[in-house]
Design a protein around this nucleic acid. Structure first.
Lengths: 151, 151
DNA sequence: AAAGATTGACGGTTCAATCTTA
DNA sequence: TAAGATTGAACCGTCAATCTTT
């Protein structure tokens, strides 16, 4: 039974299987599903993540700063992503109503429609390569693990 | 009890927790540990992955094509990565002994030493942000999930 | 013709510096 | 002075085209 490694030691077999497995699976899935989004909808994974958040509240949109935090991107990356979406007419920028420094990003009608279309094929992909291969118990185990890691 | 979603439907709460959690955790961990590698050792995550593989057999090294498959990178990406490592004296390229088209990449003495140094702080990081927060049972559950996903 | 590997060009990401308003 | 946001420049990763050897 391989237990746990400590400082200076290599990982045990059990630790390696859990850690390298996550790296491999998440890398491949993000890459393959991202390629599908690009091929079929012209969206990068980062684009899609932003649309997901904006679709939570299509009427009000979101403050640029909050949006950046929500999608785990630096402010500057978010600016590029939103600029790209705006250039394609999927998102509109508006000055923040209460704070002249800020800006809000909001889905356009076309953006909402594009998102709904992309979401259907994307979620089908997530089910096919991830959810359908796991039992209900495994989904709960994974969720518990993520909660433990994020405190 | 939320069961399973199907075509055209949004994900259930259980499905969302498992899927989004993995995306968030793997993205953050890869990003933060990668930043530490860059800061303290001047290596990208991709550099480190290549060194890990080459360190498996420091004497013989590895065929470029096989190395690319092992680290899940396209051939062209691997060429860039190895060129960078070679420019810093950590890796050496040699013509394949049996096949004039091929090339082998092999760790230099300095490369092996740099890898051992980086590995210590990297594995400490992996333990701190990932392994130490999970029970033995959870490690086994994760490993089983990765196996199910990869068939 | 096919396989191994590399290169040119492009898009995406990020840091540091900058601009604007509070 | 600080916060919100953007921009310039550099870096990385990838595709398509190319070169070399089989």
């Amino acid at each position: 039974m391989s237990a746990r490694s400590s400082h200076g030691e290599p990982l045990t077999r059990r630790e390696l299987a859990a850690w390298r497995g996550m790296l491999r699976v998440s890398f491949r899935l993000r890459r393959d599903l991202g390629a599908q989004l690009t091929r079929e909808h012209g969206l990068s994974t980062a684009d899609y993540d932003v649309l997901v958040r904006l679709a939570d509240d299509p009427a009000r949109g979101m403050r640029m700063s909050d949006l950046a935090d929500a999608v785990l991107q630096p402010r500057s990356s978010l600016t590029r992503i939103v600029s790209g979406l705006e250039a394609r007419g999927l998102v509109r920028r508006e000055p923040a109503p209460d704070d002249g420094r800020g800006a809000r990003a909001r889905l356009t009608r076309a953006g909402a429609a594009a998102f709904r279309r992309a979401q259907v094929t994307h979620l089908d992909g997530v089910r096919r390569v991830f959810l359908d291969r796991l039992t209900d118990a495994q989904l709960d185990q994974l969720a518990a693990a993520w909660a433990a890691i994020e405190e």
